[in-house]
C-alpha cells in the first residue's frame, strides 16, 4: 500500500511540472511584458513611476532573460518563498491576499462533494435496486435536468425567485458585519448560514451525474454471479446488497472524484461570479479582464494543483478499497 502511494506521488510530479508550465504560458500570453504594463498601470493611476522602477522589476523577475529562465525564476520564488509574483492592480504580492479566497473555494468545493455523495449514493442504490420503478424514473428524469442546467443558470433563476417572492437579494458568503472581521467562531457560523445555497447549487450537476454512474454500476454488479453466491449462503438480502454489489459499485464511484473535483472547481468559479461570492472566481475573472497576469497565473496554478492533489487522494482511497489495484 505504502509502495503504491509512493509510486502515485512520484507519478504526480511530471503532472505538476506540466501544470506549472501551462500556468506560466497563460501568464506570458498577453502581449507586452509585465514591467511595461505595471508601469503603465501606475502611470494611469497618476503615479509617475520612473524607468528605474521598471528596471528593478525587470531584474527581479528576469524579464530581460529568455522565457526558460523567467519560468525557473518564477518557480523558484514559489517553491522557496511562496512568492507568486506581484498583483499590479493591488500593488501587493499575490501570496499576501489570495489564500483566504483559495480556502473558501476549497470549502465550497469540498462541501459540494460531501453533499453530492450523501445524495447520490443512496439515490443511486435505490434507483438500481428498484429499477424501472416510479422512483427510479423520477430520479432519472431529475438527473437529466440536473445535467442539462448548469449551476450558474440555476443560481440566476433561484436568485430571481428569491428576489421576486422573498424580496431579498442574496449573494456573498458573509453578513455585512462579518465581511472584514477577523476569523472567529461567529464568523464561521455566519459562513455556514450563507454557504449552503451555493454548495447545493454546485452539487446539483455532480449529483445528477453520480446518480447515473452509481445506478449503472450497481445494475452491472447486481447481475454478477457472486451476488447469487452470497444469496446461496443464506445472507439476508440487505446484507447481500451492502456487502457485495454496493461495495463493488463503490470503486468506480470513488474514482469519479478524480473528475468531479475539476468539474466542481470550474463550476464554483463561474457560480461565484454570479452569486458574488468572495472566492477565487471573481478575482480570477477580474485579473484576466485587466490582464493582471501574475495573479491570474497564480490562481490557475493553485486551483490546478489542489485539484491534482485531490485526484491523488481519491486514487489512494480507491486503492485502499480495491485490492486488485493495490496488488496490481
Amino acid at each position: 500500500m505504502l509502495q503504491y502511494i509512493l509510486r502515485r506521488a512520484l507519478l504526480m510530479i511530471p503532472t505538476l511540472i506540466v501544470t506549472s508550465l501551462v500556468a506560466y504560458i497563460i501568464i506570458e500570453l498577453p502581449p507586452g511584458d509585465f514591467a511595461t504594463s505595471y508601469v503603465a498601470n501606475l502611470a494611469a493611476q497618476g503615479d509617475m513611476a520612473s524607468q528605474e522602477t521598471a528596471r528593478v522589476i525587470r531584474e527581479q523577475y528576469g524579464l530581460d532573460q529568455p522565457a526558460t529562465v523567467r519560468y525557473l525564476k518564477w518557480m523558484q520564488g514559489i517553491l522557496t518563498q511562496g512568492n507568486f509574483g506581484i498583483a499590479f492592480e493591488l500593488r501587493q504580492p499575490v501570496s499576501s491576499f489570495i489564500w483566504e479566497r483559495v480556502w473558501l473555494t476549497l470549502a465550497l468545493s469540498l462541501g459540494s462533494i460531501l453533499i453530492t455523495w450523501a445524495l447520490a449514493f443512496p439515490i443511486g442504490i435505490y434507483s438500481a435496486v428498484k429499477q424501472y420503478s416510479i422512483g427510479d424514473y423520477f430520479f432519472t428524469f431529475l438527473g437529466f435536468i440536473g445535467i442539462a442546467v448548469p449551476g450558474f443558470l440555476l443560481a440566476l433563476v433561484l436568485m430571481y425567485v428569491q428576489f421576486k417572492y422573498l424580496g431579498q437579494t442574496s449573494g456573498g458568503l458573509f453578513s455585512s458585519e462579518f465581511l472584514t472581521a477577523p476569523w472567529s467562531w461567529d464568523k464561521v457560523l455566519d459562513l455556514l448560514q450563507h454557504i449552503w445555497l451555493p454548495v447545493i447549487i454546485l452539487a446539483v450537476g455532480g449529483t445528477a451525474e453520480l446518480i447515473r454512474i452509481m445506478r449503472a454500476n450497481l445494475l452491472d454488479e447486481l447481475r454478477k454471479p457472486y451476488v447469487i453466491t452470497a444469496r446461496a449462503k443464506g445472507l439476508p438480502e440487505w446484507r447481500v446488497l451492502l456487502k457485495y454489489p454496493v461495495r463493488l459499485a463503490l470503486n468506480p464511484f470513488v474514482s469519479t472524484i478524480g473528475w468531479t473535483l475539476p468539474f466542481l472547481v470550474s463550476g464554483s468559479i463561474i457560480l461565484s461570479v454570479v452569486m458574488n461570492l468572495p472566492t477565487t472566481g471573481p478575482m480570477l475573472l477580474r485579473a484576466l479582464q485587466v490582464q493582471d497576469m501574475y495573479l491570474a497565473g497564480a490562481l490557475i496554478l493553485i486551483l490546478s494543483v489542489l485539484t491534482i492533489i485531490g485526484t491523488l487522494l481519491s486514487d489512494i482511497l480507491l486503492a485502499w478499497l480495491d485490492p486488485r489495484i493495490r496488488y496490481q
Partner: peptide
C-alpha cells in the same frame, strides 16, 4: 429459506472467478 441456504443446501457454480467477490 435463508436458514436452509448454506446450512442445509449449498451450491457451487460454473465460474469460480465471478462467483467469488473479487474484493473480499
Amino acid at each position: 429459506m435463508r436458514d436452509i441456504r448454506g446450512e442445509e443446501i449449498a451450491m457451487i457454480f460454473q465460474e469460480p472467478m465471478t462467483s467469488l467477490s473479487p474484493v473480499h
